[in-house]
């Protein structure tokens, strides 16, 4: 079989990539427009819609909430996810198979159902504060990424190194931090980034867990689009895209991006 695909296939692939990229280019263009309505190509370049983001207090507040939730949720998920991923690999024979499936459940069940259930059974049921519910919701939706990515890097870790350290007298906990964890550093960084971005972009869970004074950025964007059709949302979108590019650049420099495609 010749290595080069048929030119028609190449043409289709090129069109698919055009279809993927063009809308994002249009959002950037619309964000830079000087007009009060959304348009493309931009008419007169200006950054005033970026300033507008920070003038609208709802945007300012939700950006901060979103970053707080994403950071805290990711850290908690790492805190409970790393030991779980370690145990799944280290005690593969002793632990039942379904335990691995359990940790992927949050991405198997519909997110919107999870958000609603958390609201109905936990928030309303126990009167827990909205911020806490949001944090729990986000921790759970990023947990599968943490467990899977770190499990994948532990799968290629040679546990006999750990046993050697322990039999030479190193305490198990110390061995974990000095031998095991440094060896899966790349996996932990990748898990952190994937989890952070997933949390930052989440809509379906946050949708139910917002209340007076508390909301996340994507939910605020949704609310704003339905009321005003001005370039502010385009500039917030561009801000989020820049954040993604920055994060991807960090991944590229530390791990190479093929890691994310795995």
């Amino acid at each position: 079989m010749s290595d080069r695909p048929h030119f028609l296939l190449i043409a289709v692939a090129a069109l698919v990539y055009l279809f993927l990229m063009l809308p994002l280019v249009i959002v950037v263009g619309a964000a830079l427009s000087d007009t009060t309505y959304l348009t493309f190509p931009p008419q007169g370049l200006s950054l005033r819609w970026f300033e507008n983001i920070f003038e609208i207090s709802a945007f300012r507040r939700t950006i901060i909430t979103s970053l707080q939730i994403a950071l805290l949720g990711t850290l908690i998920a790492l805190l409970i996810g790393i030991p779980a991923a370690y145990a799944l690999n280290r005690f593969r024979i002793e632990l039942p198979k379904w335990l691995g499936t359990l940790f992927v459940l949050p991405i198997l069940v519909p997110e919107i159902v999870f958000g609603f259930a958390l609201l109905k059974s936990f928030t309303v049921g126990t009167g827990a504060p909205i911020f806490l519910s949001l944090l729990i919701g986000h921790t759970l939706i990023v947990l599968p990424y943490v467990v899977r990515v770190i499990s994948a890097s532990l799968a290629s870790f040679d546990f006999s190194i750990e046993e050697a350290a322990i039999s030479l007298g190193s305490a198990p906990v110390k061995t974990f931090f000095t031998i095991v964890l440094p060896n899966v550093r790349a996996g932990v960084i990748a898990a952190f980034i994937l989890a952070f971005i997933t949390s930052l972009n989440d809509v379906s869970v946050s949708l139910f867990l917002t209340g007076p004074g508390i909301s996340t950025l994507p939910i605020q964007i949704l609310a704003h689009v339905e009321q005003f059709f001005d370039p502010t949302v385009a500039s917030v979108s561009v801000l989020l895209m820049f954040l993604t590019v920055a994060v991807m650049a960090v991944v590229e420099r530390t791990l190479g991006l093929t890691f994310l495609a795995k």
Partner: peptide
């Protein structure tokens, strides 16, 4: 690698942003 990066990028851009793009179109 470039093509894979180009496919990962939209995936990491939020759903709201990607739906909003089609609102403009």
């Amino acid at each position: 690698s470039l093509l894979i990066v180009a496919a990962v990028f939209p995936l990491l851009t939020g759903v709201v942003v990607r739906a909003f793009a089609w609102l403009i179109i």
